[in-house]
Design a protein around this nucleic acid. Structure first.
Length: 586
RNA sequence: GCGCCCGUAGCUCAAUGGAUAGAGCAUCGGACUUCGGAUCCGAGGGUUAGAGGUUCGACCCCUCUCGGGCGCGCCA
């Protein structure tokens, strides 16, 4: 399909050049699939002004070059200058396998993909799932189109929370609870610490603001607990053996739990380079920024300022070194960028985080431009997930754990599967529940534009009807069922023959698969692939309704078997790119 | 106060400069003595928050207003 679109585009361009001269004519005009026609071109209207010709005259000049293409059955002008192209059935049939081939648009290029990035000592909750699921889908899609992808889990394994955690550990630890559920106990002592600190603040008469802001400038009367936490943090940063050992333990038990979750989700990374990995590069990073005149001293700290003239937009300053000499996450992000450029020379760096960090990354990327970083830098941000009653707060403990979400999803999928298919044995039913439940949770996140703000409700997150993973998985299972039945008759796939309307529509939908994948790779919007797969599954369901396979005459049956095979392959591969599995029966 | 993002059918969402704004859910009505009904076909439902502007053409780009979310130097 790509090749055809390009051939039509350059032929059309040549025709315009021949008729009206080369001035203002791009080397290839855009042809694309359209609901109105197999392929449509709107270039005549776009070029009318530049060529100072009526758009319909341009379209008329283009038409013969389109008609001359052997794939084209019919091409006609419509409306203001649209060109609608109908393709020959024979061409469509011959190019069926194009649906299975991606253009290697990323070949020879590397992408660093930073996603998931949970914070150590906190369990993953449903707010973490989007970064993880989106990132994993992007990894798979980028690889499918030829990129070398470095999947990097930029773990939140450093920062002021460790001072608090160490204080909490010393004061509140329940050793037995820790043995049973290390991360759960770490969360408990962190919450406990926060409550105590808050109580002390109130006792001092200090205002207590909402949110994670208690590292703001110390009030004159700081809570004793906070002073203690800061002291522990300083010791940790100075390499105090005891605190370092504790910190390392926190990281290890957290990572063990993250790994269990990742395994369950089918997510994997090439690197786990947390913030702490960059610690010993921070001083040099700031020095370099100062030397190059990018950063400057201000009120004892080191900051980078941004102006509209130099950076394209005015932004608040970015702090890279505190007055006390400490560094911030922005510093380590700059260091991480330098490290990634040096180690992998990527052409793109994608960072998947929630929307709250937009300003931070615009600042970071502005710094990168001043440093001369040549890669395309993309903040792949997504809308915050929230509960109907408001945002999550780990500290307040009003979270729904990722594990409980997945458990509930499997349970609901099992209930449905049991009621609809009594033939499934317990073991197979459990597998169906796992695949369908997990798929529905992932698809729920992936199928919406990532910038959409999601208000979590169980029924929405775990819906099994409509535009959901099970709908697509069900289409796949039905094809497999047909294939099993027809195989018993000894029938084998054969060449496509005359196409019924729903068959033709199905093939045309199949041919768009590589375009959909490429779009996701370039725009970092996986929901486009969900939309495509939903459409393909729908096109198959219509075909299934209209066109019998098993009872068709042999040549037709063979052709339809081929169609079934290609649809099953695309559904399975497409879902796999989203990190979603299929089952043979459900 | 300044900035970013969002606002599309009753609800959840598509459409990222192309024609008459599309799906799912819900509602109503059909299909099939089922190659798997987790299906298919159809109907109703829209001033794309509002007002201006740019364009041959605007949900999409620009300006303003309203509403919601988020952020804004010593947390991450």
């Amino acid at each position: 399909m790509h090749a055809l679109l390009e051939e039509l585009g350059s032929a059309a361009s040549a025709a315009l050049v021949k008729a009206f001269g080369a001035e203002g004519v791009p080397p290839s005009l855009v042809f694309e699939p359209s609901p109105r026609a197999d392929v449509q071109c709107t270039a005549a209207m776009q070029l009318a002004k530049a060529l100072r010709k009526p758009p319909r005259d341009l379209a008329a000049a283009i038409l013969p070059s389109v008609l001359a293409h052997p794939a084209v059955e019919k091409a006609e002008m419509a409306g203001a200058g649209f060109i609608n192209v109908t393709l020959r059935d024979a061409w469509i049939a011959e190019h069926l396998d194009d649906a299975l081939t991606h253009r290697p648009v990323g070949a020879g290029q590397t992408v660093v993909l930073d996603y998931s990035s949970p914070n150590v000592a906190k369990p993953m909750h449903i707010g973490h799932i989007r970064s993880t699921i989106l990132g994993e889908a992007m990894k798979r899609v980028l690889r499918a189109v030829g990129y070398t992808v470095v999947a990097d889990n930029h773990l939140g394994d450093w920062g002021t929370q460790f001072g608090k955690l160490i204080v909490g550990w010393r004061r509140y630890l329940d050793r037995a609870a820790y043995e049973r559920d290390p991360v759960g106990e770490l969360l408990r002592i962190y919450v406990k610490y926060s409550e105590e600190e808050k109580a002390q603040k109130l006792a001092l008469g200090a205002p207590v603001k909402e949110g994670d802001d208690d590292d703001a400038p110390l009030p004159a009367q700081a809570p004793a607990l906070l002073l203690e936490a800061r002291a522990e943090l300083v010791k940790l940063q100075a390499g105090d053996p005891e605190n370092v050992a504790l910190w390392k333990q926190f990281v290890d038990v957290s990572m063990a739990e993250f790994d269990r979750t990742y395994k369950r989700l089918g997510v994997s990374f090439d690197e786990v380079l947390g913030e702490s990995f960059y610690n010993d590069m921070l001083a040099a990073t700031v020095d370099e920024l100062l030397e190059k005149g990018i950063a400057e001293h201000s009120q004892g700290a080191v900051i980078v300022t941004f102006t509209k003239e130099r950076d394209g937009e005015a932004m608040p300053p970015m702090l890279v070194r505190k007055a006390d000499g400490g560094f911030l996450y922005g510093t380590s992000d700059i260091a991480a960028m330098r490290y990634r450029m040096g180690r992998w020379s990527p052409s793109r760096i994608l960072i998947v985080t929630d929307e709250r960090q937009q300003l931070h990354f615009r600042q970071l990327f502005a710094v990168a431009r001043r440093l001369g970083v040549p890669a395309r830098l993309e903040h792949v941000w997504f809308g915050l997930m929230r509960l109907p009653e408001g945002t999550f707060s780990t500290r307040d403990g009003n979270v729904i754990s990722l594990e409980s979400l997945l458990d509930e999803a499997e349970k609901r999928a099992a209930d449905v599967a049991r009621s609809l298919n009594a033939d499934l044995a317990e073991a197979e039913l459990a597998e169906v529940a796992r695949v369908v439940g997990l798929g529905s949770v992932k698809y729920n996140d992936l199928s919406k534009d990532r910038q959409t703000l999601i208000t979590f409700t169980w029924d929405k997150a775990l819906s099994l009807q409509g535009n959901t993973a099970p709908y697509v998985q069900y289409a796949y299972a039905r094809i497999r069922s047909i294939q099993r039945k027809v195989a018993e008759l000894g029938a084998v796939p054969g060449p496509l023959v005359a196409l019924e309307p729903t068959e033709r529509a199905l093939v045309m939908t199949l041919l768009r698969y590589p375009l959909a994948v490429e779009e996701v790779a370039m725009s970092s919007r996986p929901h486009a692939l969900c939309d495509y797969l939903f459409e393909l599954a729908g096109a198959f369901s219509s075909f299934f309704n209209d066109c019998p396979v098993k009872d068709a005459e042999p040549a037709v049956r063979a052709a339809r078997l081929t169609l079934c095979d290609r649809v099953a392959t695309v559904l399975r591969r497409g879902l796999d790119l989203l990190g979603i599995e299929v089952v043979e029966r459900m």
